[in-house]
Structures are given as structure tokens and as C-alpha cells.
């Protein structure tokens, strides 16, 4: 049994206009996606800005209610949880958000922010709490005096580390990491990624890892899901998807990885065409207006996510589809 399983998960946002709030459109942020997160493993979620990654994580965190579809945690549907069950779920699933500025309470000192989940759930003694908080701060390379400061007194990367320390406080079963390292410089990024992996090894925690840093995703993940405009277009073992991408969008995405050295050649596949809109997704395959291989049927029929070369791909190029 998977730790978490999402089936046909869907989230649509109505777009309203004017005083009467007339609905003028529908943002299909997440459109019937299915995936699983295994215990002790990492699912990497990648895709263009605006394709629905954060919305997916907000659905898992139950900050947002799905328009359709089911999420199961350890076999039971979230919808069926009573208050107690929900409380346990919230404890087991923690998050580090994309925006470290918005997610930390500006009126609380860092020590209180990091220690809050412990205080609520475990009621440790004052000295035990101090010790745990110190250990957590050290884990993310923040000086001990940080505990007495407020979030605004930290740089962008330092705030992100505060959020990570807080998320790890309760030894959760699943941590949703939405761009956890993009605000960090490479050396601290390496430290944090190593730390996350080490914690996974030791405690068997699972991660949903969202990042635009494809090398980091490939490094961290067991499985990678590639999203395009609210849909999963490729899903499979991380090494396979990263090294031998099958879907034309995945190929473009991974080819755009910048070379490290100046003048170093990149075989960047430049995506032609307009950035598509989730308000008005293209017919058939949503990628067809920008796809270098698009055929006639691509504009007509929506490809299904089907097995191909040991993974799932939604593309008419492959016979399975």
C-alpha cells in the first residue's frame, strides 16, 4: 500500500469579473491526475510555471478542497476522516512552502516558530523544548541566537531554512517541499538536500519534492511526475525520466538545463509558440501547439497516460497511446 495515493485529482478555479461576480472563465489548474507516494520515497513533481504543482500540494495539505477526485492516506480517503483523524493527518504531513516570506508568522520569534508544532503536539518541558529547537536550528545551519530574532531579520535563504526546521520538528511521515531550495545558494542547497536524504534514510519519511532545479529533482527523487497544463504527461523512475525522457515536453524541459560553464554548449530545444493558458487549454494533446512532432490527431484526440519503455507517457508518438 502506498503512503499516499491520489486518483483523478482535479481542481478548477472559477474566474469572476465585476460586482456581480459573473463567471467569465475556469482555470483548470489540476485536471484529473493520479499518482502515488510510497513510504520512505520521494516523488518529484516538475513542470512549467503555472502548470499546477503548488495547487496539487495544496490539495494534499487540504488547504484547498478538490473539485473532484480522491486522496487516500495509508489506505483511507481524506474525505472520510473525522476530526481526530484529520488532526493526526495534519501532524503526519508537513510542508515547506514556495514563498518563505509569506509562510512565517512575522510576530513570532524564530524559536517559537520552530518549536510551535512541538508545543502543540508534545508539550515538552521548557528545557527539553530549548534543546530540541537548538538541535533543529543547528540541523539547518542557523546560528543559535536566531531563536530570539524575528523572521524579517533574516535573508531569503535563511527564512527558508527556518521553515524547513519547523517542518521537520515532528518527524512527519510526509513532507511536501514546494521549491524548498530555490532561494538557497548551491552550497547550502547541497547541505539541505543531503540533510533531507539523510533524514529519509534514518526515519523513512516520504517527500513530495517540487522544484525547477531538475538536477536536484533527479538527485532526490525515486519517481518523477512531469506536469503540463494541469495534466501529468510522463511518470516513471527518476533515472529513466531524467536521462531518457520520452514525452516531447519532458525532452524540451530537460534539454533546457543550462550548462555550468560559460560558452558551454547546450542542446536547448526552444519551445516555440505561445505559453498556453489553463483558462483555455488546447484541444487534443495540450502540448500540441508547441510540439515539434505534432501530428494531425494530436489536435483532435487527447492522449492517455499509458505504459511505454517502463514508465507512463501521454503522447501519440508511442504505439501504446
Amino acid at each position: 500500500m502506498s503512503l499516499l495515493e491520489a486518483t483523478d485529482l482535479t481542481k478548477h478555479f472559477p474566474v469572476r469579473r465585476g460586482v456581480l461576480g459573473r463567471q467569465v472563465g475556469l482555470v483548470r489548474a489540476v485536471d484529473s491526475i493520479s499518482f502515488a507516494i510510497e513510504a520512505g520515497q520521494t516523488l518529484g513533481l516538475v513542470g512549467e510555471s503555472g502548470c499546477g504543482k503548488t495547487t496539487t500540494s495544496r490539495l494534499i495539505l487540504r488547504v484547498e478542497a478538490p473539485t473532484d477526485g480522491v486522496i487516500r492516506f495509508e489506505g483511507s480517503a481524506l474525505d472520510g476522516f473525522d476530526r481526530d483523524g484529520l488532526r493526526r493527518y495534519r501532524r503526519s504531513v508537513q510542508a515547506v512552502f514556495q514563498d518563505p516570506y509569506a509562510s512565517l508568522d512575522p510576530r513570532m520569534r524564530v524559536g517559537a516558530i520552530v518549536g510551535e508544532p512541538l508545543v502543540i503536539n508534545e508539550r515538552p518541558s521548557a528545557s527539553a523544548l530549548r534543546e530540541r529547537v537548538s538541535a533543529l536550528l543547528e540541523l539547518v545551519s542557523l546560528p543559535a541566537r536566531s531563536r530570539d530574532l524575528f523572521p524579517h531579520e533574516f535573508s531569503g535563504g535563511q527564512r527558508q531554512r527556518i521553515a524547513i526546521a519547523r517542518a521537520l520538528a515532528l518527524s512527519p511521515k510526509l513532507v511536501v517541499l514546494d521549491e524548498p531550495v530555490s532561494a538557497l545558494d548551491v552550497s547550502i542547497r547541497a547541505q539541505i538536500l543531503n540533510l533531507l536524504r539523510d533524514l529519509q534514510r534514518r526515519f523513512g519519511v516520504s517527500y513530495l519534492f517540487i522544484s525547477h532545479d531538475l538536477a536536484a529533482v533527479a538527485h532526490m527523487s525515486h519517481t518523477i511526475a512531469v506536469m503540463y497544463l494541469g495534466k501529468i504527461v510522463e511518470l516513471g523512475a527518476a533515472a529513466e525520466v531524467a536521462r531518457r525522457p520520452k514525452h516531447p515536453y519532458t525532452q524540451a524541459l530537460f534539454s533546457a538545463a543550462l550548462p555550468l560553464r560559460p560558452g558551454g554548449g547546450s542542446d536547448e530545444i526552444i519551445l516555440a509558440g505561445e505559453v498556453p493558458s489553463p483558462l483555455d487549454p488546447p484541444s487534443g494533446c495540450r502540448f500540441h501547439p508547441r510540439c515539434p512532432y505534432a501530428m494531425e490527431r494530436c489536435a483532435r484526440d487527447e492522449p492517455l497516460l499509458l505504459p511505454e519503455s517502463g514508465r507512463l507517457v501521454a503522447c501519440h508518438l508511442y504505439p501504446g497511446a
Binding site: E48, S49, Q98, E179, S182, A183, H212, L214, A252, L258
Partner: peptide
């Protein structure tokens, strides 16, 4: 920091 590679490029 929050942009994917194609949009970033």
C-alpha cells in the same frame, strides 16, 4: 527562482 527552465530562458 520560481521559474522553470523554458520560461526562465
Amino acid at each position: 527562482t520560481s521559474l522553470d527552465l523554458t520560461i526562465q530562458a
